[in-house]
Amino acid sequence: MSSIQKWIVLFICSIIANVSSAPFAYGKEDLKIEINKLENRIKKYGILLREQEKRLKNLEPSEPVRIDDPPWAGLSLPSHTESIRTVIKTGPRIPFKTIIDKPDYKRAAYEKYWHSTTGRWSYMPIRIHYALHRLFTNYDIGLSEWYDFEHNVGLSIPMFQNEKALDMYIVIFQTKVTDVYTKGNQIVVVGVPQRTGAQVITITTKNVEPINKREALLVQLATQAGQEIDYSLISYVPPDFWSKQKKNLKDRTP
């Protein structure tokens, strides 16, 4: 039983005690008024209890449990990978576009919209996941998912929905990106570590040629010397995604 529940039980017990002794202190009409007041107070604290339980559920698991990172059913690593140095030396360097560059940006320890009264982004295992990493990847495919992505990383990111070549958005904290390489199912983002900073770059999936398109892409943030700083896994989506969506919509239109 939580401390809030215990407090409510004690409060109700005190009410019962007051009601039991009420006939000696009040007349019949006064007693009805007092009972109504007490019933309203019980209802009020019942609502408060349910609200607090809901907020607690938004914050943590219902039972003490170990949760691995990421705290959801994640993708598996591709079956074939090369060392970062090999990708840099033998893989093609691909173009990238910087859409956000804030060299003095400092990540917040806490944002107001992560509060449990909001609930959508307050779950502690999710918050810890985002605090552990400095590299995040996404496509501009689902608006609701994109909305969550922005609030979880703490940045407002423009989305383009490029019809000619699908953009992969790569969010990087505390690293100045210099180059991007790819080989097979790997993408290596090379940069210089920094104390501050936030960058968002885009690459197009037409420049990525995975060995196995059904397996995940391994996106690695690394130094020029080949030391991994962080990594992210993301499904491969072909570059004609948006053009197909447009065609399908056109075909369904009478």
Rank of each mutant, 00 (worst) to 15 (best):
M1H: 05
I4T: 10
W7E: 09
F11T: 05
F11I: 02
F11N: 09
F11V: 00
C13H: 01
S14L: 15
A17C: 07
A17M: 10
V19P: 01
S20G: 03
S21E: 14
S21V: 11
P23N: 06
F24R: 02
E29H: 07
D30N: 04
L31P: 00
I33P: 00
E39F: 07
I42R: 07
I42K: 05
K44R: 11
K44W: 11
G46L: 08
L49P: 00
L56W: 00
L56S: 07
L56T: 06
K57N: 11
P61E: 03
P64I: 06
P70S: 06
A73K: 13
L75C: 03
L77Y: 10
T81H: 02
T81Y: 03
T81C: 11
R85T: 15
V87Y: 02
K89Y: 06
R93A: 11
R93L: 02
I94D: 03
I94C: 05
T98E: 15
I100C: 04
D101L: 08
P103S: 08
D104L: 06
Y105F: 15
K106V: 15
K106L: 14
A109L: 13
E111K: 10
W114Q: 09
W114L: 10
S116M: 10
T117C: 06
T118W: 11
W121L: 10
I126Y: 14
I126C: 07
R127F: 12
Y130V: 11
Y130N: 10
R134V: 15
T137N: 12
T137L: 05
N138H: 12
L143S: 12
S144H: 08
E145F: 08
E145I: 14
Y147S: 07
G154P: 09
L155Y: 09
S156Q: 14
I157R: 09
E163P: 07
Y169E: 03
V171F: 04
V171Q: 06
Q174E: 15
T175E: 09
T175L: 03
V177N: 12
T178N: 08
V180N: 12
Y181C: 13
T182V: 08
G184S: 01
G184E: 01
I187E: 10
Q194S: 15
T196D: 13
G197E: 02
G197D: 07
A198Y: 05
A198V: 12
T204P: 00
I211P: 00
I211E: 06
K213D: 05
A216G: 06
A216N: 03
V219R: 00
L221D: 08
L221I: 04
A222C: 14
T223G: 11
Y231D: 13
Y231V: 01
S232F: 05
V237S: 02
V237W: 04
K244E: 12
Q245G: 14
N248E: 12
N248Q: 11
L249I: 04
R252D: 10
T253E: 04
P254G: 12
